[in-house]
Design a protein around this nucleic acid. Structure first.
Length: 560
RNA sequence: CGGGGUGUAGCGCAGUGGUAGCGCGCUUGGCUUGGGACCAAGAGGUCCCGGGUUCAAGUCCCGGCACCCCGACCA
């Protein structure tokens, strides 16, 4: 393709509303544009990248025997009411009505639709197993889109669904997906990790995330360098590192006027935060629960939810009704409240607690509860529950997620098959997703320099860019001869200076620059690698073969 | 939904109640060609929207909208 005829609107300056690197570079390079908050469009260059990612994904999905199909985005409400997600998804889905006032939603994911197809068309164990996948636009009304392509409200996702007759079958389908995903991400040139994750709204028994470690990420992951344990902080477990010997061992009431938060108490009484027991009141099913946790930890609400169910925060009125006082609530003589003590409490001898009375705390409170729970958000410095080393916490971008759904949807939506013995059984399902835009943004976050993007050749919009400086005919010859075997683009613009061409080429990140310029006098052209590792000078007569070999060798690095 | 910020030419931005500006980009002509050249002449504005104060509002006041960031939330 000829740049002189293409639409590649590069920008010299960073867009005002972009914060992270991938957002800035993808906009500046003319790959994407934003239409509205969380709504992006792919311009020709960006779409070429997406199509390359798409191709890798389809090849790997096909390899595990998955079949591509294409489902609708518009989805009638009935299906979602059957599964219950019409309500549980809440405001996070776009809901629409047709002219007859019938309700639809724009699908945020497709378990319900897959279930609908399966229950109408799959009747026998002989029809199983199946793996179906599609690449399609998903819609989610995210409360806060952010980071360019990283969290958006309309996005391309590869989603696949496995249907099995047995749990062993599900294990196998899940395993196949794990392998396919590893191959996909490797071929896209990504450095990634996989980790235990929360199933959240999806339901089901087991799930794993694939993620890129990046400060642009918004999820936090616990990583143990020693044994390889990794898990999303939502589900991560750890051991509390140290036993705390308290300064105050005598039980007594102290005046703490207007001192309420852990921070303030720690300053006021001159103790470290781990001497304090933080008390938080929640209501679940109209019953109050007082969660106790050591002052240097935060509550992991996902874990709490697994213990007491869906909950609400107590209001100030709730606290007063329990004969306590907001800011000074504590476990001592608080009646009719179930105590949920975190394990971190076990690792302290005496603690400081609210006195359930305005402006007072107790010090020297002896901690001794019957049961301890894990409701703690793991933090840096904790001890790995697996091997005892110190764990680390890193930010990650989630790029893929695989779930064992089990019979969550087949039971609620009555997706049954008849087994060999004649009995009706629910189909056992799995669901598996990859965000294409997140791969694109993730790669840019990982591979860039001050000049721009450095694409891995496997998903680069072009393999080679020919920069024509003074060699019109020679450039053309190289372009014409190489374009059959390579994705090649030629910068044949007559009205811009060489500097502009170099800078644009680096900005859009093409792996190889073929420079046709002053070396022509020696009958040579120059080839520069975008990653800067090596440059070459080649005789014009050998140039085509040389370039083709470079590209082929480079591509081999991404094949497995 | 809470907190913070921004909104002026295509992009990035300046603008003190008194004629709407700068850099880049764009158009035309000239010149130049190895890392975002140069000269000259131009085009381009709902100063986010609505209301108010004032002789006079991009600027002050009130209300709204959009976008970004932090948090809440979230496969």
């Amino acid at each position: 393709m000829r740049i002189s005829q293409m639409f590649i609107p590069t920008l010299r300056e960073n867009p005002q509303d972009a914060e992270n690197i991938s957002h800035k570079l993808l906009i500046r390079g003319g790959f994407i544009r934003q239409l509205s908050s969380g709504v992006f469009m792919f311009l020709p260059l960006g779409w070429r990248v997406i199509k390359k990612i798409y191709k890798i994904i389809t090849e790997e999905m096909d390899r595990i025997g998955a079949q591509e199909l294409f489902l609708s985005a518009l989805s009638p409400s009935q299906l979602w009411k059957e599964s219950g997600r019409w309500y549980s998804y809440g405001d996070d889905v776009f809901k629409v009505k047709d002219r007859k006032n019938r309700e639809y939603l724009l699908s945020p994911t497709h378990e319900e639709i897959i279930s609908e197809i399966a229950r109408k068309n799959i009747h026998s164990y002989k029809d199983l197993p199946q793996i179906w996948y599609q690449v399609q636009t998903k819609f989610r009304d995210e409360p806060r889109p952010r980071g360019g392509l990283l969290r958006v409200r309309e996005f391309l996702m590869k989603d696949s669904y496995s249907l099995d007759a047995t749990w062993e079958g599900l294990d196998k389908s899940y395993e196949l997906h794990r392998e396919a995903y590893i191959r996909i991400f490797k071929r896209c040139g990504l450095k990634f990790i996989h980790l235990k994750a929360s199933s959240g709204l999806m339901g089901g028994s087991q799930s794993e995330e694939f993620a890129i470690i990046s400060d642009a990420g918004e999820d936090e992951v616990v990583i143990c360098e020693n044994c390889g344990y990794s898990a999303n902080v939502e589900v991560a477990i750890s051991k509390v590192p140290n036993f705390v010997n308290s300064k105050y061992k005598q039980f007594e009431k102290v005046l703490t006027k207007d001192i309420t938060t852990v921070e303030e108490v720690s300053n006021f009484l001159n103790v470290s935060k781990d001497n304090i027991i933080k008390s938080m009141l929640y209501y679940s099913d109209n019953k109050p629960y007082l969660v106790l946790i050591r002052g240097d930890y935060d509550i992991n609400e996902e874990k709490l939810r697994n213990i007491i169910g869906e909950f609400l925060y107590a209001t100030d009125e709730d606290i007063i009704r329990l004969n306590s006082y907001p800011g000074f609530i504590g476990p001592y003589k608080l009646e009719n409240v179930q105590i949920i003590a975190d394990e971190s409490i076990k690792y302290m001898d005496y603690g400081i607690i609210g006195a359930n009375e305005k402006d007072y705390h107790f010090v020297g409170y002896k901690t001794n509860f019957e049961n301890y729970y894990d409701v703690r958000k793991v933090k840096k410095g904790d001890i790995c529950a697996n091997c005892g080393s110190e764990i680390d916490i890193k930010k990650v971008i989630e790029i893929g997620h695989i779930f064992k759904l089990g019979t969550r949807y087949s039971e609620s939506m009555k997706v049954y098959f008849q087994d060999r013995d004649g009995s009706l059984k629910p189909i056992i399902m799995g669901s598996y997703g990859i965000g294409l835009g997140r791969i694109m943004a993730g790669v840019v976050e990982l591979y860039n320099d001050e000049k721009g993007i450095i694409w891995p050749i496997s998903i680069s919009p072009f393999d080679v860019i020919i920069i024509d400086i003074e060699g019109g005919e020679v450039s053309n010859m190289i372009y014409e001869k190489s374009k059959n075997n390579l994705d090649v683009i030629i910068d044949d613009r007559k009205d811009v200076s060489p500097g502009v061409k170099f800078n644009d080429a680096d900005l859009i990140g093409i792996p190889f620059k073929v420079i046709v310029g002053k070396k022509l006098r020696k009958n040579k052209i120059e080839i520069q690698r975008r990653d800067g590792f090596e440059n070459y000078e080649v005789d014009i007569n050998n140039s085509i073969e040389f370039i083709e070999k470079l590209v082929t060798d480079e591509k081999k690095k991404f094949e497995i």
